[in-house]
Write a protein that binds this DNA or RNA. Structure first.
Lengths: 235, 235
DNA sequence: TTTGGTCGGATTGCATACAATTCGTTCATG
DNA sequence: CATGAACGAATTGTATGCAATCCGACCAAA
């Protein structure tokens, strides 16, 4: 009944650009769109039955999130992070996530714990499956864990920062990931959730830190940086 | 001569929307545009001799930064942060800035130290002046100190986050600031810079934390939250 | 084969026209 | 006087047209 006053009965003419943005972002995070893929305004618009204006707005949003790189008079492309950018992403996560874990620890409640359990169950399920499709879902779920953590922390600003960082991490892993170290990640997620449930903020922070270390250690961030002239002389 | 290859001789047809965005952002941070001010697309466009399309793009950027709130079919307004949002801003800074200070400590060099000194000198200069004009410059310079810190840290992602947080802080201070506690802030900036120069990351982090505490303590975040029905029943 | 130049298609940047929505005003009614 | 409906001005949401720009194909010359 509590919906009757606030929530409109029908869809409130949702922002179409945001819908397009969400679809494309999911496609990028799920690796259905590889780094470097061209995203033409006309094509995107046609795909969602919208004009270039709306498609352009969606691409602009994605460009703010760092998932899409736009070049003037050339168009928008799925971002192709350099190793340096990849390191920046993880350095940012090292700065932010321990603090988020501490906040989450202070605010976590029974229903949050239930959400964590559901999340971990999802991860286990995907982990059991095989094939590229399952692997994509697994990466997605792994990111969702960190977003759940941020949501529990209860700070919308930090949540938005984490959304950006998690999405960019997916791109980085797609580009530089070596193996399925995500299996190792799952048990770490369990430990983190346990520390949170126990209210041990310090331990949760330390575990998160180690977890990020492990994710980054599984990347191959050397010599892939395309020794192109362009990068060599880049200012 | 090193400019001859990379940098174009003429201005490279800079993005006009970004120019508009920067102007409006400065106006907001400098308090020339107060919270709640309507920013009509037509007016903004006319002011910069551009069409609504470009003005709209600029407003969209500012909306992503949290400086402008857009309501569908109603338009864009300078953000009017609630006390809760204000607390989120400072909570985010508490999470991020100590980490930035640590990174800055690890990378700081002689030229950076010189920049800090120049920055502190600027602050002193504005502090000596009187009048609302001087006070605006003072607030701006105070924010610039934190941005310089983030720039020295060398992580573009965290720098962008800090740009957003500093800008929103200005709004919050404009709304809820009590007195000129910024004077107290200046000596703290000096201490922080000293700790950085000495390479004492731990002390720098602790000082930053206390500094943020002091800034927030000078705010009056109670009972100003407009006990409007709208907020009372907000989901 | 490689280098340099020109042309044409395709795409973006921007301005503008039209449709949809909102809000203040006016006015009729209880 | 208070309430509510209806109208109209103003503003935003969206589509589309035109000019500017870029890129690849093609071709000529060394």
């Amino acid at each position: 009944m509590r919906h009757s006053i606030i929530e409109p009965v029908e869809a409130p003419a949702e922002d179409r650009a945001a819908v397009i943005r969400d679809h494309i972002r999911n496609a990028i995070v799920d690796r259905r769109l590889g780094p470097g893929t061209k995203l033409s305004e006309q094509e995107v618009g046609a795909l969602f039955d919208a004009s270039r204006t709306v498609a352009r707005a969606a691409l602009q949003m994605l460009s703010f999130e760092g998932l899409v790189r736009t070049e003037r008079n050339r168009g928008a492309f799925v971002a192709n992070p350099t190793p340096a950018e990849a390191r920046h992403v993880f350095a940012s996560r090292r700065v932010i996530e321990p603090g988020i874990a501490a906040d989450a620890c202070a605010r976590i409640g029974p229903d949050d714990i239930a959400r964590f359990e559901a999340q971990l169950a999802d991860e286990s399920r995907y982990l059991a499956l095989r094939g590229p499709e399952a692997r994509r879902s697994e990466i997605k779920a792994s990111g969702d864990f960190h977003l759940l953590l941020a949501r529990v922390a209860g700070n919308p600003i930090l949540l938005r920062f984490m959304e950006e960082l998690v999405a960019r991490s997916s791109l980085v892993i797609a580009l530089y990931g070596r193996t399925g170290a995500s299996t190792c990640g799952h048990s770490e997620h369990q430990e983190i959730a346990a520390a949170l449930s126990a209210g041990d903020a310090e331990r949760a922070g330390a575990l998160i830190m180690r977890h990020i270390d492990h994710i980054e250690a599984d990347l191959d961030l050397n010599h892939k940086g395309s020794t192109a002239l362009r990068d060599a002389i880049a200012v």
